[in-house]
Simulated scan of single mutants.
Amino acid sequence: MSAAPAALPAESAERPDGGPELGLLLVPPKARTGWRLVPARVVAMCAVELQKLRHDRTELYTRAVQPALWLLIFGETFTRLKAIPTGGIPYLDYLAPGIIAQSAMFIAIFYGIMIIWERDSGVLTKLLVTPTPRAALVTGKAFAAGVKAVVQAAVVVVLAAVLGVGMTANPLRLLGVAAAVVLGSAFFSCLSMTIAGIVLTRDRLMGIGQAITMPLFFGSNALYPVDLMPGWLQVVSRANPLSYQVDALRGLLIGTPSHLALDFGVLALATGLGITAASALLGRLAR
């Protein structure tokens, strides 16, 4: 019995009509190795997280209600009172960058709930047995939270512009605003995932998240200058990454004096530490 003819190499396979080769359909693409592996996995995880927005866009609209109320009620009222020294700029202009940072933080600070939900549904266990490094999983989720926060920040910027806030239209400065929002949100989402790895339950995470959001917000320079705070609160403010995010946003959006190199350096360092801590505790969630 004659041997069966050898199969043609995948790269030589052609359609009967002389069309393009089918090699890409028959042979899987080469796996990424070396330095390209982690960035590719981070981008993939970020894309997976962002796909969820296609199924529930109402989350972005409902989360815009709270910052809108801050601008419309708190901002307009204190602009008339002139009770807070802002260096000669209208209080609404001073407040708008702080509300952008606040809305981004509120999105990210409960991101750990999603991790616990993935643990309960078995998704997290499946992710952890893949070759994807844990740091890549955490980083992808963190920067997906940052991209969501950028969309939220865009809504607040439009609302602030409608209210007459004088903000820059410089594309480079707006890119800097997006970078500050992404870094800040990435840190707070990592903080949330770290807390999730410690408390392990959604109820505890919700309680801790609610307990720390207001102190983080009021213990920053989002609503008033640091110089107005008592000494102990000034120390808290200088250790609070939200203060550096707000400082960067004010400098980029409305041109107030800021320390952009320090602000972005602190945000990048805090994000790196957050990714490290969340990665170390990710396996504890799956036990």
Rank of each mutant, 00 (worst) to 15 (best):
M114I: 02
M114P: 00
I115M: 11
I116K: 01
I116C: 02
E118F: 06
E118V: 01
E118C: 01
E118M: 03
E118Q: 10
R119C: 02
S121Q: 09
S121E: 09
T125H: 14
T125I: 10
K126W: 07
K126A: 11
K126D: 08
L127P: 00
L127Q: 12
L128W: 07
L128E: 05
L128R: 06
V129I: 15
T130W: 09
P131N: 08
P131Y: 08
P131V: 04
T132M: 12
P133V: 02
P133M: 03
P133F: 04
A136V: 02
A136S: 06
L137D: 00
L137H: 00
V138N: 00
V138D: 00
V138S: 00
G140E: 02
G140I: 03
A142T: 06
F143M: 03
F143W: 06
F143P: 00
A144M: 01
A145T: 10
A145G: 15
G146W: 00
G146P: 00
G146M: 01
V147N: 03
K148Q: 09
A149V: 03
V150I: 10
V150N: 01
Q152C: 04
A153Y: 00
A153G: 12
A153L: 02
A154D: 02
V155Y: 08
V155R: 00
V157L: 12
V157G: 06
V158C: 05
V158E: 04
A161H: 10
A161D: 11
V162L: 13
V162D: 06
V162S: 06
G164Q: 14
V165F: 10
G166W: 08
T168R: 05
T168H: 05
A169P: 02
A169Y: 07
A169C: 05
N170Y: 10
P171L: 03
P171T: 04
P171A: 03
P171H: 05
L172M: 04
R173H: 10
R173N: 08
L174Y: 02
L175E: 04
G176N: 08
G176C: 08
A178H: 03
A178V: 08
A179I: 07
A180D: 04
V181D: 03
V181N: 02
V182N: 00
V182P: 00
V182F: 03
L183N: 01
G184N: 06
S185E: 05
A186K: 02
F187S: 01
F187H: 12
F187V: 10
F187D: 01
F188Y: 15
F188T: 03
F188I: 07
S192Q: 08
M193Q: 14
M193E: 09
M193G: 07
T194G: 14
A196K: 09
G197H: 13
I198V: 14
I198M: 13
I198D: 02
V199M: 07
L200A: 06
L200Q: 11
L200W: 07
T201L: 06
R202W: 08
R202Q: 15
D203K: 12
D203R: 12
D203P: 07
D203Y: 09
D203W: 05
R204Q: 13
R204N: 13
R204Y: 13
R204T: 14
L205D: 11
M206L: 11
G209M: 09
G209V: 09
Q210A: 13
A211Q: 12
A211W: 13
A211L: 15
I212A: 11
I212N: 12
I212V: 15
M214Y: 14
M214W: 13
M214R: 07
